[in-house]
């Protein structure tokens, strides 16, 4: 194959990334998809193509419950995170005039400790003898430690929202920074008060950032398994925990693969819908 100089240059530039992507993303993905059509036969794998794993994944109530819970948790986490992130991004963009870089730097503080440590931190705060319960009993507000704090879905939501907040703040901040301030003055000049101006100009123009934040938080949280495992208890388990069990203790990799592919398809579809809705909504924003 004869390539012109430019094409060769381009290919050379992307080849390390390409090799990396093929080896570590495409190949494992393909393996997982292939596995999902096979059957586990004790220690062997029966390589006859079958849809049985998918039938089981989509009909067994336990799996359906887990995938719905995963989606529900990630939707709540996304909603909470984006709603909490917006005011912070807004404040940063519109009210911080000096040392913006320092503020951005401070927002990344949660990244300075490992994810695992941050999850444990919430365990310490929310636990039966945790910081929150001790403080409340110490102050005499409650007689017995609260038990609804840890080992349930609430704990999962709180922990995930905290972990993903910076990821949600930054895209919204960037979108807000890009808004020409004279547009806000124009809206005011044409009769809008602060609230109307926000809903007619600021929010529509910040929409691309909001959509980006939504996707950035939603997609990884559906598949999170560390947080539900550590703070979710039995009620807070999510689909990823089941996938992990299938690949590990249950020794049924094909079923695990089918569950993984199923949830991947669902998340992709939801993301696509959000993306398209966002594009329609903010389509004319250049």
């Amino acid at each position: 194959m004869i390539l012109n100089r430019e094409a060769r240059q381009g290919l050379t530039l992307i080849s390390p990334t390409l090799v990396y992507a093929l080896l570590l993303l495409a190949a494992p993905l393909l393996t997982v998809v292939t596995f999902s059509f096979w059957t586990q036969d004790y220690l062997d794998i029966d390589t006859t193509i079958t849809l049985n794993n998918y039938r089981e994944a989509w009909t067994q109530p336990i799996y359906r419950t887990l995938i719905f819970r995963s989606l529900w948790v990630s939707l709540v986490v996304t909603l909470v995170t984006v709603i909490l992130a917006f005011p912070i991004a807004y404040y940063l963009s519109f009210h911080v005039t000096r040392r913006k870089a320092l503020w951005l730097f401070l927002i990344t503080i949660p990244f300075w400790t490992s994810y695992l440590l941050r999850v444990f931190l919430w365990k310490v705060i929310l636990g039966y003898n945790g910081v929150l319960n001790s403080a409340l009993t110490g102050l005499g507000i409650i007689d017995e430690p609260l038990t609804f704090l840890l080992y349930n879905v609430n704990a999962v939501v709180i922990t995930l929202a905290h972990a993903w907040a910076p990821f949600a703040i930054l895209p919204i901040f960037v979108a807000l920074e890009k808004i020409d301030r004279s547009l806000l003055e124009a809206a005011e000049d044409l009769g809008d008060g602060a609230v109307r101006r926000f809903f007619r100009v600021t929010l529509p123009l910040a929409m691309p950032g909001v959509i980006a934040s939504t996707l950035i938080v939603l997609i990884p949280t559906v598949g999170d398994f560390v947080t539900p495992r550590l703070v979710g208890g039995t009620d807070g388990l999510m689909i990823s925990n089941m996938i992990q069990i299938q690949f590990g203790k249950a020794n049924n990799a094909p079923l695990g693969a089918a569950l993984a592919v199923s949830s991947m398809v669902i998340v992709s579809s939801i993301s696509l819908v959000i993306f398209l809705v966002g594009k329609k909504f903010g389509g004319r924003v250049q």
């Binding site: 020409d180 004279s182 547009l183 003055e185 124009a186 809206a187 100009v201 123009l205 924003v285």
Partner: peptide, 9 residues
């Protein structure tokens, strides 16, 4: 306005 401030959306 100097930049016209036409709402892009």
């Amino acid at each position: 306005f100097q930049s016209y401030a036409i709402f892009p959306h």
